[in-house]
Every structure is written in C-alpha cells, then in structure tokens.
Design a binder for these strands. Structure first.
Lengths: 168, 168
DNA sequence: CAATTTAATCAGGTGCCCTTATTATATATT
DNA sequence: AATATATAATAAGGGCACCTGATTAAATTG
C-alpha cells in the first residue's frame, strides 16, 4: 500500500519531468539552436554514428518509415547538411552522406549537461544514473517484447552524446 | 572531474529515458488509448482541474496561443467531449465545458503507474522522487526566469494525475 | 460617442510522422 | 533471355501539435 503511493508519486514526478523538459528545450532552443532527437535531428545523429547509410538502413535503425526518412533526408539536403549519392553496386540505393556543414551542425549542437543536473551531488548523480538505468533496461525489454522489429537499441546513442570523454 | 563524468552520465540517461518514453507511449497507446499531455489532452486535463474556463484562460494556463487553444477546443467539440457556451456576463467569452463523455474520457484514461516504475523498491522510489523533485524545482525556476508569463505551474497537475489517493 | 482593448476565429504555415500507391532497379524462376 | 517477384526510394495525401498575422465582435475607456 505504502509502496503503491510511493510508486504513484515517482511516476507523477517522472511525468512532470517529461513535460517540463519539453518546455525547457523550447526555451533553451531559442537561446541556442540545438539538435532535436526527432526527424532531421535523428537522421543527423545516426549519420554521426555511421556515415553513408542508405535511407533504408536509416529507417530501420531509427525505427521510422522509409517515407518519413526520405522526407527528412530531403529537408537536410535542402539545408546542405547531407548529400545523396547513388550506390554503385546497387543503383536503387541512395546513400546519405554528411557534408562538412552537417558534421559541424552536429558538433556545434553538442549537448551540454543541463544546469539542473549539475546541481546534484556526486552521490545523487550516481543514484540517478542507477535508477534511470534500471528503468530504461526495463523499458527496452518491454518495447522489444511489444515490437521486436523496432530499431530501438539505437536510442542509447542519444544518451552517449553527453559523454564527451568518450568521443575520440 | 569525476563529478563531471557522473553528470554527463546522468544527463545521458535522462535523455535516453525521455526518448524511450516516447516510444513506450506509442506502444502503450496502441494497446489502450490514453490522454496525451498535449493538444486536446492538455485541454481536457485543464478542464478536469477546473471546468467552464474561457479559451483565453485555458490558453494562459497551458502556455499556448489562443489560436491553438481554439483549434483543440473545436476538435474536442467535434468529438463531443466538450461544449461551448457563451458567457452571460461577457458575451465575447466562449466558456468551455466538459460533457459527461469528456469527463469519462479523462477518468477512463486515468494514468496507470508504468511497470518499469513498479519494479523499483520502496527506497528506490523515494530516492527517485527526491531526485526528480530537486530537478523539477530547478527547472521551474529556470523556466520562470526565462519566461515569467509562461503558465508552467500548471504542469504539476499532470503529475498529480497519478495520485489516485488524492482524488476525491 | 469615438477609440482602444480584449476574446475568439479565420487563414495559412511548419515540423514530425503515417499509409497507400508508383517507379526503378535487382534478383529469382522458368 | 524473359518473366515474376522483391526491394529502395519517391510521390501524394493526411493527421496532430503548434505558431503568426489578420479580422470580427463585444467591452471598456476617455
């Protein structure tokens, strides 16, 4: 019983955090443009991980329809952040390649640790990472059970964007 | 230094959680329709808190433009979840009222504590709530500093949806 | 009473996604 | 080789959550 209330409280806080972080993002975005982990941003992030992917590969990795992928790629082409080149081995395939500008867009949008995270103590940070890890592991399992074809493993990549230490 | 890495790790986990929860929502939504805390859902939630608000009031509380508010209200009217009645004291005002169906939609969509939260121990739930509270408090402050007019306090309401105990 | 403010709506637009055709190109089958 | 089938990508159209810039109607103010 007591446990039930605690769980509701935690779930509520989690929901509140999610809502707030949308607003937070909007505000921060106005100050300094930053990559969203949606649409075009997703594509860029995937290409940062591995360049010269086909649209089909992108779609699979990102768990979205090839049509949507094509749309975002097209928008990125218009913004000169990627180019398309026909594969020589299979001329149906349109390879998506980051341009210098595209690469720069990713770098310059490098995620900064938000201030509200910085204000936690060492111990608290450990606790938070531990708890969130427990939660995300369970989520991956649930999502995978519901839809094994979803390219969801990919999302770990978004998390690693914060880890500057690990980049080169 | 060590602290910096811990912070990056936690920030990354937080980002990963947010991404995953979008996907999680989509999957859960297919199984059982549920209110989103966006658009029409936001309106319903606000009305659940206080019925018979003007569109202007809704817009202010929800921190969105009156035009968007009007759009969502109109969609809800078409779905017979709310009705519009002209205010008698000020005939410019169109009051938005929940219908029985609207009220039911809110109740029946009552949030359930997600399984991944339930799997935490009592202590872990306490820790998580504490940490998230610390974070959200800081977020409220930052958001308010950036844009004091934003009706952001409202979002606490979303959190309270989980607290069945507290409802009537 | 004229001028201004306010509530709501209309019109049009953006971004993220989806589904249902189509069009090329490849590969497998006869 | 010729046909059938599978696959990569695109076109077309739609839905949802927002937004900005007019416009209209009703209130308030001077």
């Amino acid at each position: 019983m007591a446990n039930e209330i605690k769980a509701e409280l935690a779930a509520g806080k989690l929901a509140e955090y999610e809502q707030l972080s949308k607003i937070y993002d909007d505000i921060v975005k106005q100050a300094r443009p930053h990559l969203t982990v949606e649409g075009q941003g997703k594509i860029l992030l995937a290409l940062a991980d591995e360049d010269h992917l086909s649209q089909r590969q992108l779609a699979t990795r990102l768990g979205m329809s090839p049509q949507s992928t094509s749309e975002f790629v097209y928008k990125l082409v218009k913004r000169d952040l990627v180019t398309l080149t026909k594969s020589q081995s299979d001329r149906r395939i349109n390879l998506v390649n980051l341009t210098t500008a595209g690469r720069q867009a990713i770098e310059s949008a490098d995620q900064e640790v938000p201030p509200f995270v910085k204000l936690l103590s060492d111990d608290e940070l450990d606790q938070l990472s531990f708890l969130l890890n427990k939660i995300t592991v369970a989520m991956y399992a649930d999502i995978d059970a519901a839809n094994p074809t979803l390219g969801v493993k990919f999302h770990k990549l978004f998390a690693s964007r914060y880890l500057k230490q690990f980049k080169k």
